[in-house]
Amino acid sequence: MKRIIDAHIHLEQYDEKDIVNIVSDNSVDALIAVSWDLDSCKRTRELAQQFPKVKPAYGYHPEQSVPAEKEIADLLSWMDHHQHEMIAVGEVGLPYYLRRKEDISLEPYIELLEQFIIRAKKWDKPIVLHAVYEDTPVVCSLLEKHSLEKAHFHWFKGEKKTVGRMIRNGYYISVTPDVLYEMEIQKLVCQYPLDLLMVETDGPWPFEGPFSGRQTTPQMIHFSIEKIAELKKTRVEDIYSALYKNTLEIFSN
């Protein structure tokens, strides 16, 4: 059995029956379960207590309104109390897609993200980031400012110059099943070093192409790995091994 780790999944957003099916997949060794807000963090924690495969990450997803000061204080206090349980800080970042829909200021999101980065550094945890295109250099600068090296940019997309900066800094990226049909992601896979790559689903986010109409599960990762092997011109077995090793490396405490 070829072993996989889903490096980024919103497990708490699935129905209970689907959660059981996902954690029962014998090819899945671990699920890096990210959180959306404080309630999501608490639910993710419950799943981690119920299923050993679930490795919880706590944070506040940026594609929503910035919380009030008390909400931020409550979340950070809760995370501090549970820091020893979490495998990473996440999902956090900047609201690229929300800004395409609404006229909002980026500054409050940058301030909130910096608080997460400071704590990830203090707690010696990797950080799971939602940052794409022109938002990525801003995030890179914050990571560099605080010397936080263990950074995971999930489902990353961005310009070649930024990609080079990320590679020099040793930041990891993870690839979703859209690598099977998105040229932009395929080019990124060819450019990014194998030793900084991981695979994810971002489930339950749905995919198109051969996955159209199907519920997103970690089983899709096996198809992603086959495509990565094709793009990298490397044996599939070696890709499985490398991606697995990379994920253990960044998420080991």
Rank of each mutant, 00 (worst) to 15 (best):
H8E: 03
I9R: 06
H10C: 10
N21E: 13
N21F: 13
I22W: 03
V23L: 09
V28A: 04
R45L: 09
A57R: 05
H61L: 08
P62T: 09
Q64L: 07
E71Y: 04
A73L: 15
A73V: 11
A73M: 07
D74K: 08
D74C: 05
H82T: 07
E85T: 13
I87K: 11
A88F: 12
E91L: 01
G93R: 00
Y97K: 03
L98W: 10
R100H: 14
E107I: 14
P108F: 03
E111L: 06
Q115R: 02
R119C: 11
K125S: 05
I127M: 04
V132W: 08
E134F: 07
T136W: 11
V139T: 14
S141I: 11
S141Q: 15
E144Y: 07
E144N: 15
E144F: 09
L148N: 12
H152Y: 15
H154M: 10
K157P: 02
I167Q: 02
R168L: 11
Y171G: 00
T176C: 10
D178F: 07
V179M: 08
L180P: 10
E182T: 14
M183H: 14
Q186F: 00
P193E: 08
L197W: 02
D202I: 00
D202Y: 00
W205D: 05
S212L: 12
Q215G: 09
T217K: 04
I228E: 06
I228R: 11
E230Q: 09
A242Q: 13
Y244G: 11
I250Q: 07
